[in-house]
Design a protein around this nucleic acid. Sequence first.
DNA 1: GGTCGGTGAATGAGGCCTCACTCACATTCC
DNA 2: GGAATGTGAGTGAGGCCTCATTCACCGACC
Lengths: 198, 198
Amino acid sequence: MTKRENKREEIRKAAVEVIATHGYYAATTDKMAQAAGVAVGTIYNYFSNKEEILEYIFRVEVEKRFRYYDALSNQKIPVLEKLRLLLTRHFDEIQQEPAVGQVMVRERYAPLDRQLSGIQEFIQGVPTRIQKLLDEAVKNGEIRPCDTLIAATALWGSVEAVVSRALTESDDDKQKAILAKAADSLIELYCRGLKKTD
Amino acid sequence: MTKRENKREEIRKAAVEVIATHGYYAATTDKMAQAAGVAVGTIYNYFSNKEEILEYIFRVEVEKRFRYYDALSNQKIPVLEKLRLLLTRHFDEIQQEPAVGQVMVRERYAPLDRQLSGIQEFIQGVPTRIQKLLDEAVKNGEIRPCDTLIAATALWGSVEAVVSRALTESDDDKQKAILAKAADSLIELYCRGLKKTD
DNA sequence: GGTCGGTGAATGAGGCCTCACTCACATTCC
DNA sequence: GGAATGTGAGTGAGGCCTCATTCACCGACC
């Protein structure tokens, strides 16, 4: 990583913290600069404006997830197992960087007017890929035929809600407990449903 | 409804439209005033500040849902049926006032620093009530024992995601189609799960 | 090895603009 | 005619971004 990329990374991390605690709009460039230990002007040597910072934050996460998805899609394991791995990885990452999780669930819609492509890709891209997996699973008979658009949307919505819920938990151990078993709980929920099997 | 309440209501409706299209932060008081056909100053005769408008918007919706929940909880029907009715009603209301739906899914977290109680009640209150229903259903054997906190959080997360997805649909008929069958699709998804019943 | 000029990252005060909110006055209502 | 309601230009606080300047570093040259 070049020196330049390094500094960009430092600013990104600082911005994540500030946005996570104050929200995008209250996260002033002053606060970000202070958190990164640089002057305001320095930020503008690495990003063209405040929005680009938010976009970059999302882009980094999107790419992480897409890479993992791609690696997974070639493997010869049941689709539901792929799904479980995908969610597990996601919750793991949130656990390691809770602030990133905060930003992702909170700022998905942030600057409405000029929609940022990094955020767009995240909102649409991840559920779309889940839908692809579900379609595949329907085709090979692993799951029953159903409206995969609704199912994929619902599944990812659950994930975000659980992340959001976990992160409002002030007790650190409880937070970790929720995140740790979240993937398995959700997969079980979506596989078996709620009804008693009789 | 008194004349005063009437005007407050008009301003609320106008604000909903403006916030739905621009997002809370870009929704200036000027735009709201214009949309309501009044002067900026008038708004401040009915609301003490901009945040209170957003809070009021949420409060109106929360109370609608709580009233329906209360009416439902006394009835002698299966819990899962209550849940279905609750969701059906919710999606119906969104269909009739899509802008309100936009605001609810987008602005849940809006002004982070000083959390607005109307919004808080919505974020926490609705899932909490769903969890109560699930607990009841577990107790009377209607559904299998499970982590009802996760299940309730997930269920409501799915609802919000589907609403959000439907509202990004520009084709009006498609939007209605999604919303119309959303409640049943979700209930079925959560009851039967995805797996093939063999 | 000491001097010197070139380079570009870093700085932060302030320009400029936006927007929530006010208030002195006008209008309407009863 | 007095109370209630409406008005919208004005105010000032606050925040994004700029840019003239600084300065640490480095290679060139004597």
